[in-house]
């Protein structure tokens, strides 16, 4: 029974196409978030609930919040408030809402029909992933922490240089 997989995959592809064809960055972000949520449903359907949760929390949560902050920082002023009023018209949010409603219906259906995901051979839960992650992949975890530290230092350096530049001029 792969109907959940097929519908979620179709929603992901449709949302990604809509994201690519938008002209306004905020509209594209709405569709990108729906696309990531659809991929999370696909993960759950494949028997990977831990990765599905992380996809929602880290991708659709943290990374998209970064994008939203940058888009908000980039267009301040009168033009932004006009765009804000434009966002409240139904034509903008009706598309992402319909796609997200499809995903919500799938989610409710999965919850009511029991715990096992329909398409997977077996459920690989957080315990197995954690055992592998801190067992044979321990060096990878250390490297990922170094990479994140590098990203932190790099982002801080770029922001710091720009601020000292502004104070001089």
């Amino acid at each position: 029974m792969t109907i959940v997989f097929d519908v979620a995959g179709a929603v992901a592809i449709a949302a990604t196409i809509m994201m690519l064809t938008r002209t306004h960055a905020v509209h594209a972000l709405l569709y990108l978030i729906v696309s990531l949520l659809a991929v999370a449903v696909v993960f759950y359907d494949l028997g990977a609930p831990f990765v599905a949760a992380l996809e929602v929390i880290v991708y659709a949560g943290a990374i998209m919040v970064l994008f939203v902050f940058v888009v908000m920082l980039l267009n301040l002023g009168e033009e932004a408030s006009r765009a804000e009023r434009g966002l409240l018209t139904p034509g903008i949010w009706i598309g992402p809402s319909v796609l997200a409603a499809i995903l919500l219906a799938e989610f409710g259906w999965l919850l009511t029909r029991g715990s096992a995901p329909p398409a997977a051979l077996a459920n690989i839960g957080p315990a197995e992933v954690g055992m592998a992650l801190f067992g044979s992949y321990l060096i990878g975890v250390e490297l990922a922490s170094m990479l994140l530290l590098g990203g932190l230092v790099g982002a801080y350096h770029l922001g710091w240089k720009e601020r000292s530049h502004a104070s001089h001029s």
Binding site: L54, Y59, I63, F67, I124, G151, L152, G154
Partner: peptide
């Protein structure tokens, strides 16, 4: 039916987070 695929996805997730922070800066 191995957890290795999900482990690699976690690494991709960490890499994407680092990439997007530097990229947006």
């Amino acid at each position: 039916q191995q957890p290795d695929g999900q482990v690699v996805f976690l690494f991709i997730l960490a890499m994407a987070a680092a990439e997007v922070s530097v990229g947006l800066a």
